[in-house]
Design a protein around this nucleic acid. Structure first.
Lengths: 237, 237
DNA sequence: GGCACGGTTCGGTGAGCGCCGAACCGTGCC
DNA sequence: GGCACGGTTCGGCGCTCACCGAACCGTGCC
């Protein structure tokens, strides 16, 4: 299989969306993915067949359901690397064109999702706090510590089942932040934190983009759980 | 920029060929790349513009020449990771179908190119020899040692100019070998070794595929320079 | 100035492919 | 058996895009 063929698998928005969704490490049914991406089941079926044939996804048939998941940690890493690069690489528009863009960029610099985890000053602050408190360690790349696992259980955050095991997603990955020029937290842990923050309304999306607003609950949770003081969402952007 | 857009840049065989060629870390002119890939200059020009706009390539204009190179080490890593995955991932044909395929697979298992460096038993043997002799060290990932640089100068192998510097290709990268299930040497060093081996006729390509044959000169060079004893190319496949 | 040449732009062509709906298949439930 | 439903296959449609040749622009050499 050639480089172009492999890239071609991910070059379609629908297939990319499938892979992005599957990065949570769980297995989805064909129908779930079809609905998630907003395409007909027939279309999804064809896409899945191609992704499986290309070695990016693996399938498990159960009765009349076709469960698919990422083929392995290498696949997850690959997709995450590509997403990171896609996010990191600045488009051809360094200078914001107008007030609307400028506002949006400020908001994204403050807090946004990078793919499926937190980025911007919020993402970096959370990462720093985790490192400082010894919940995550930086030796030969980032790893979660025993204290970190205890802390997760403490605050009732669960990692997906297969995380860190063979075929699962790596627990922690560092992801370069293009606004902060620093690393923030990716991997399954980053995704779990982001999902938790959204589920518990610590942050909420601003409009339809990637920018996030930290809620009052969120400020409180960040302070109590991690000792992170985030700036307010209004009046400084 | 989205994952799909980024992947789309690499999804075209011509553009992928450009990026592959540029992985040597040097800057090529538009015309060189066009001839290399076998397309019209106009076609190449459009491809280059897209790759540059997408942040994968950077350009430097000099007089009437347009020099392009990879945008940075992250781009090189990304392309190399994709190539590695594309090579590593087994096509849908684990069992060799006939004698011809079986012969080819044996040859590739013995020695082949993985992208632009050596793989198969040959690649792993060379990597092991470099590690054993302290020319490459494995601390926080593979790195070339001072002795390694001296050895390179000794045997008259040059790394591309920008290697290891900002914007250049990483010197050494480990690349998982699918036949050996072990790591072998990628990165600029792996590429330089492979190019040297081909230039000095230590190995030669078998037909048009990726399989390599170690020549008599090659056996001698491997033994003298690295203490590597390779099996013969015939009679055992 | 004039020519050679590297590179770009533009229009047109053709192929590939992503999409859908319709028909079909198999599983699982009633 | 009969029905509901998840998934697949197939045919057809329309768009995208990679390609080329021709015309054009700018640089550098004579």
């Amino acid at each position: 299989m050639s480089l172009a063929q492999l890239a071609g698998l991910l070059a379609d928005p629908t297939r990319a969306e499938f892979c992005t969704a599957l990065l949570d490490g769980r297995a989805w049914t064909a129908g779930e993915l079809a609905r998630h991406a907003g395409v007909a089941p027939s279309t999804a079926s064809e896409h899945l067949s191609r992704l499986i044939a290309g070695g990016l996804l693996a399938e498990e048939r159960q009765g009349r359901h076709r469960y698919v998941r990422l083929a392995g940690p290498a696949a997850a890493t690959l997709i995450e690397d590509l997403s990171t690069y896609a996010d990191t690489t600045a488009p051809t528009q360094p200078p914001p064109r107008n007030l609307r863009d400028s506002t949006r960029m400020s908001a994204e610099a403050r807090a946004r999702t990078c793919y499926d985890h937190l980025a911007g000053r919020l993402g970096v602050a959370v990462t720093d706090a985790l490192l400082e408190r010894g919940l995550v360690a930086d030796r030969d790349g980032l790893t979660i510590t025993r204290r970190g696992r205890a802390w997760l259980a403490d605050v009732d955050i669960e990692l997906p089942d297969r995380t860190g095991r063979k075929g699962g997603r790596p627990v922690v990955r560092s992801c370069l932040d293009w606004t902060e020029r620093r690393s923030h937290l990716g991997g399954a842990l980053g995704a779990a934190l982001c999902r938790t923050a959204l589920d518990r309304a610590w942050v909420e999306r601003i409009g339809s983009g990637r920018a996030l607003r930290v809620t009052a609950d969120g400020h409180r949770a960040l302070r109590e759980l991690l000792g992170v003081e985030m700036e307010s969402g209004r009046g400084d952007g």
